[in-house]
């Protein structure tokens, strides 16, 4: 009798150990799956740094970043990417100046005033705007915006920084509107009610109480828009003319993204390495934007 019980106990113990091992293995598998994102980020960073540093070292840090000329296929190639950096900065700034006010006012209207069907339809429309592929934006830009600019401003070629700015402004609208709406919706009703009770009109309340209360979220929306605009490649490539000029509103320009995309297919040697360096510079900008975005998101989380 006693023997049977011990045998059972031993068997049970072995069984338990087995399940425990299996559980641990499964835990390990899930941990690995979870860490894949971290590994991907590391992979991207390491690859870009390894691929991007040699050209910068060979060309020279200042000559590369602040050189005003880019002639990668000339007999004596020159690699200066200041035009690309400035174009990306100006283009993004232009898109923000144009897109943020429109997105902001739309967001306030949709969050605070529009009701029921109206809000639903508009939100669906905004989601649709976000879902349209960038090459479609590029195509429409090529055939509507570029000739339009040529006619209206009487310039020889409409493929210009201005065209890129307008396309980018449209493309960042959905992110700005959506994130701002989320932030504005999260403002406590009590704030607005208190302001109304003190005699402010609804519209004064929205702009002087709700908007300041949601300012971190709206800032996050703007930063997100900056990230989208600086990273966009295909649509910009189709409307900006793609010539490495210093940025000017009515001239063909080349962005950081399009500089990489336009020469990658046929590049080799130092030229290709320089393209990787451009990607590294772009990546640096994106990381800077990510840190800023995180800062505002955290602030928004604390305020809410």
């Amino acid at each position: 009798m006693a023997n049977k019980a011990t045998a059972f106990l031993i068997g049970w113990r072995i069984e338990m150990k087995k399940t425990k091992i299996i559980e641990n293995i499964i835990h390990g598998i899930f941990l690995i799956l979870g860490l894949i994102t971290v590994a991907s980020v590391l992979l991207i960073t390491i690859y870009l740094v390894i691929a991007g540093i040699p050209a910068i070292r060979e060309i020279g840090f200042f000559k590369f970043l602040f050189g005003k000329n880019w002639a990668s296929t000339a007999a004596e190639p020159v690699f200066g990417i200041l035009p690309f950096i400035l174009t990306s900065v100006y283009g993004t700034a232009g898109a923000i100046v144009l897109g943020v006010p429109i997105g902001f006012f739309t967001a306030v209207y949709l969050s605070k005033i529009a009701t029921g069907k109206m809000r639903e339809t508009m939100e669906a429309a905004v989601s649709l705007l976000a879902g349209i592929p960038s090459v479609v934006y590029g195509l429409v830009g090529m055939l509507v915006l570029v000739p339009g600019i040529r006619k209206i401003f009487h310039v020889p070629d409409g493929a210009s920084l201005l065209a890129a700015i307008i396309i980018l402004a449209i493309m960042i609208l959905p992110s700005i509107i959506k994130v701002s709406i989320t932030a504005l919706d999260a403002v406590p009703k009590e704030y607005e009610e208190a302001s109304l009770a003190l005699g402010a009109t609804p519209i004064e309340t929205y702009f002087r109480v709700s908007v300041p209360a949601a300012k971190s979220g709206i800032a996050a929306a703007v930063v997100l828009g900056v990230g989208r605009a600086i990273g966009e490649a295909m649509a910009v490539m189709m409307v900006s003319g793609n010539v490495p000029n210093m940025p000017s509103l009515f001239q063909s320009v080349r962005f950081l993204t399009t500089a990489v995309a336009s020469e990658m297919a046929y590049s080799s040697g130092l030229q290709q390495q320089a393209l990787f360096s451009i990607a590294l510079v772009l990546f640096f900008f994106i990381m800077l934007i990510n840190v800023t975005l995180n800062f505002f998101m955290k602030k928004e989380g604390k305020e809410a």
Binding site: S40, A51, A233, V260, A261, F276, F283, M287
Partner: peptide
């Protein structure tokens, strides 16, 4: 992990293209 996921969603697709090509 969460920070990495956020970073991934902020990286522009052209950079994915480059690293994808290299890796």
């Amino acid at each position: 992990i969460e920070y990495a996921a956020e970073t991934l969603s902020g990286i522009p697709s052209i950079i994915y293209g480059l690293v994808g090509m290299l890796f």
